[in-house]
Computed example of a mutant assay.
Amino acid sequence: MSFKAIPGQPAAKRMLQNSLRRGKVSHAYIFSGPVGTGRRQMALALAKALYCRHRTEDQDACGECLDCRKVAHGNHPDIHIVEPEGQTIKIDQIRALQKEFAYKATASATKIYILVQAERMTSQAANSLLKFLEEPASSVVAILITENGNGLLPTIQSRAQWISFTPMPRGDMVTVLQQEGHALPLILPAVHLAAGVDAARELVTAPWFAEMRNVVIQLAREACTRFPQAFMTIQQRLAKSELAEHLPTFYDLLVLWLKDMVQLTLMRQEHLVYKDQTDWMAQIARTKDVREWIRITGQALELQKRLRSNANPQLLLEKTIISIQGG
């Protein structure tokens, strides 16, 4: 992975490449931003550029030297990646890292460690890491990857350079995924649910995602035209299937459908998510006024919140269908 191969994030790339150009790479970084925005790929791109023997003029890795190949294949001896064991990153993991880094780098002058989901460190692990940041045993670069940099200890934040990762523009994600040959009907909802192209690609290529989209379309249509059948569909295709594991995404996709209905009621079709379903959706949209569709959307969002609170899933689904029907 090189900087130029990572879509988006121009500000993050510029900051890192300028640091490499000036020879002033920080001893610690916080890569903070939503899942799917390329934080891990950027960490590896920085590592590859640091170790590269033939760095390009724009401070990117050549991708061909021995060190570049080792980073790409995940076997560079001076890069250590720490991820949560279970729910947290534990103090024993940080201690093992400190012990490993007590030795000199084997292949280069610098060792790098990457903490994935750094906000999930226990308090003991975070305090141990803080001491390590203050007193590294050798030349070290730390990269803390997190969804919420503010969730880290303030003392850790103050000792690291903050690099913010922002959601990639949807239009850019659509372009990338279309160029890769993915189907537009799946791309459009995926880019609304993901912050970056990697996360969107993961959805688009997941078989369950395509099936869930089809279920949302079927249930929405049945709720409006063949109401009793919708309850059978809930039983057969949601409640008692593998899709039951992805009910939060069902609500995400349903809310996107309802927002399309609001737009169709207002005679707007420029930014629809379910573009391939416009004909029948436009007919149904006219059966209610815009205030009713907005009310139903609000109810769906409220039922989604209750799902997160461990309410009965099947009961919530049935209430959702009744709400769409107008009951």
Rank of each mutant, 00 (worst) to 15 (best):
A190S: 06
A220I: 02
I187N: 00
E211N: 07
E211D: 15
R213L: 12
E211H: 06
G196F: 05
R221L: 12
V215W: 04
M212K: 06
I217P: 06
N214S: 15
V197F: 04
A223K: 02
P207D: 14
A223T: 01
A199D: 12
T205S: 15
R213G: 06
L193A: 07
P189A: 06
D198L: 02
A200D: 05
A195Q: 02
E202F: 00
N214Q: 15
A199I: 02
R201P: 04
V197N: 00
Q218I: 00
Q218N: 12
Q218M: 08
N214H: 12
V204N: 08
W208P: 13
R213C: 13
A206M: 12
M212S: 12
A199Y: 01
R221C: 09
I217C: 11
M212E: 13
V191H: 00
L219P: 09
Q218P: 01
F209T: 03
A195I: 06
A206L: 14
R221P: 08
A195C: 04
M212P: 13
L203V: 10
F209L: 09
V215L: 09
A200C: 07
A195F: 00
A190Y: 01
A206Q: 15
D198P: 01
V216E: 06
A210W: 09
A200I: 03
E222Y: 09
A206H: 13
V216Y: 00
D198S: 14
R221M: 09
L219E: 07
A190C: 08
G196K: 01
L193M: 13
V204S: 09
G196I: 07
A199G: 05
V191S: 06
A206V: 13
R201N: 06
Q218V: 08
A195D: 07
A210H: 04
R221Q: 13
A195L: 05
V215Q: 14
H192V: 05
F209M: 10
A210S: 15
A206G: 12
A194F: 01
A199K: 04
I187S: 08
I217D: 12
L219I: 10
W208F: 14
M212N: 09
N214F: 03
A194R: 03
V191I: 07
V216C: 02
A210R: 12
V197Q: 04
R221W: 08
V215I: 11
E222L: 14
E211R: 12
V191Y: 00
W208Y: 15
A190R: 02
P207L: 14
A199F: 06
V191E: 04
F209S: 08
N214D: 15
A194V: 04
A194H: 02
I217T: 14
E202D: 15
T205Q: 14
D198K: 10
L219S: 02
E211M: 09
L188H: 05
A200N: 09
I187E: 07
V197A: 01
R213D: 04
G196S: 00
A200F: 03
D198C: 03
E202Q: 15
T205E: 14
F209R: 05
V197R: 05
F209K: 02
E222F: 09
Q218A: 12
G196Y: 00
E202S: 15
